[in-house]
Simulated assay, not measured.
Amino acid sequence: MTPLGKFEADVRRCIKHERADHGGQCDALRVARKITETFCACCPECAALAEAIGAYWFRVYIKPAADLAGEPSQAHIDWLVEMLAFLSGIDAGICAVSPEDWREIRELVSCEAGTLPLDLLSRLMSALLDKRALD
Rank of each mutant, 00 (worst) to 15 (best):
L4M: 07
K6C: 05
F7N: 01
F7V: 04
A9G: 10
D10A: 14
V11D: 01
V11E: 00
V11Q: 02
I15F: 02
K16M: 11
H17K: 14
E18Q: 12
A20P: 02
D21W: 11
H22A: 08
G23K: 00
G24S: 12
Q25K: 12
L29Q: 06
R30S: 06
A32N: 00
R33D: 07
R33E: 10
K34N: 11
I35K: 01
E37Q: 09
T38F: 00
F39P: 00
C40Q: 07
C43F: 03
P44M: 02
P44S: 02
C46N: 04
A48V: 06
L49Y: 02
E51D: 10
E51W: 02
G54A: 05
A55M: 10
A55R: 12
Y56H: 13
Y56C: 12
F58T: 03
Y61I: 05
Y61P: 00
K63M: 12
P64W: 08
A65E: 06
A65K: 05
L68V: 07
G70V: 07
G70Q: 11
E71A: 14
Q74K: 12
A75I: 07
A75R: 10
I77C: 08
D78V: 10
D78C: 11
V81H: 07
V81I: 11
E82D: 07
E82N: 05
L84S: 07
A85P: 01
F86D: 00
F86H: 00
L87G: 08
S88D: 03
S88Q: 13
I90E: 10
G93M: 11
A96W: 00
V97T: 12
S98H: 05
S98D: 07
P99I: 11
W102E: 04
R103S: 15
R106P: 04
R106A: 15
E107A: 15
V109E: 03
V109G: 07
S110R: 12
E112C: 15
E112N: 14
A113R: 05
G114T: 05
G114D: 08
P117R: 09
P117V: 06
L120I: 12
